[in-house]
Design a protein around this nucleic acid. Structure first.
Ligand code: FES
Ligand code: FES
Lengths: 145, 145
DNA sequence: CCAATAAAGGACATTTTTGTCCTATTTATT
DNA sequence: AATAAATAGGACAAAAATGTCCTTTATTGG
């Protein structure tokens, strides 16, 4: 509703990869799609994007799969995933669909919209995969239901 | 980026109707589409929806068009437009795409997401068409660019 | 080297959203 | 009553997002 389906799957997938990487487990597309309840082939495409944009790391061949090392879990923020998949609409777009958001010729909703967008942006930039994975680890949160 | 295109057009259209109604002018689909820079026929559909959901009032026949009386400009909030066009995803949907947002089995982003969604919801529920139209009236804001 | 395994990627299919066109209905004016 | 102007609405078209299938490439282990 705020992110595309692709982006939702991307975040869920990345969090799952982070979670399993905490245990040193490398995971396959099939396992990921199963665990986050997403369409396999579509999820594979998204994982490719995340891999290309260095959000997660991929390894080909037997024993291959997706992983993320511990330090990256702290540096990879949600904003990177959203940016990799949905682009920068969330950062530069006008809430009412004008060509671009421009404070000098604002749309009627600009001021109110920018406040919310700034909060969202800050949230995305300050939330790491590690933070999200730890909630899952202790069983407080869920990636499917 | 947060609302559908239909919803963006809907809000812009409704604000324009409100603005013109302040001068007692009833406006046609063609004028609206011209002034908010939107596709005519598509805008007509959206105006139908808004009319059906009582956000604006429509009058058929010669001298007909869309209008909104002064008291309605205060009571009609953005939330009504968004609800009429995009439904209640914004209210009940999970940010990571789980079936529904459920605080008892939250997704990893739930707490952070709910904060932002609540702000957005409040903003939509507290912003009237009158408020948006007045900014336009004095030339501070724009509906196209 | 060979076979098996897993991601990468291209081509295609389906669904949803966005957008167009044409006809029907309502109503003001003459 | 006839005409014309306007919205209502149905049917269709195009584009974008979502989703599938199959082939290629890299890598491991025997
Ligand atoms: S101009 Fe519309 S949100 Fe800034
Ligand atoms: S459960 Fe995901 S936002 Fe509430």
């Amino acid at each position: 509703m705020m992110f595309s389906k692709a982006c939702e799957y991307g975040i869920r997938a990345a969090v799952y990869v982070a979670l399993q990487s905490l245990d040193g487990r490398r995971v396959s597309v099939n396992e990921i799609a199963e665990e986050i309840d997403s369409p396999i082939a579509f999820t594979a495409k998204i994982l490719q994007q995340l891999s290309r944009s260095k959000v997660i790391h991929s390894v080909k061949g037997p024993t291959g799969g997706f992983e993320l090392d511990r330090t990256e879990m702290d540096t990879v923020k949600l904003s990177m995933i959203v940016h990799a998949i949905d682009g920068d609409d969330i950062y530069v777009g006008c809430g009412l669909g004008l060509k671009e958001c421009n404070a000098n010729q604002p749309c009627p909703l600009h001021d109110k919209f920018v406040d919310i967008r700034t909060d969202l942006k800050n949230m995305l930039e300050n939330t790491s995969l590690y933070e999200l994975a730890t909630g899952l680890e202790v069983g407080l949160t869920y990636l499917k239901r």
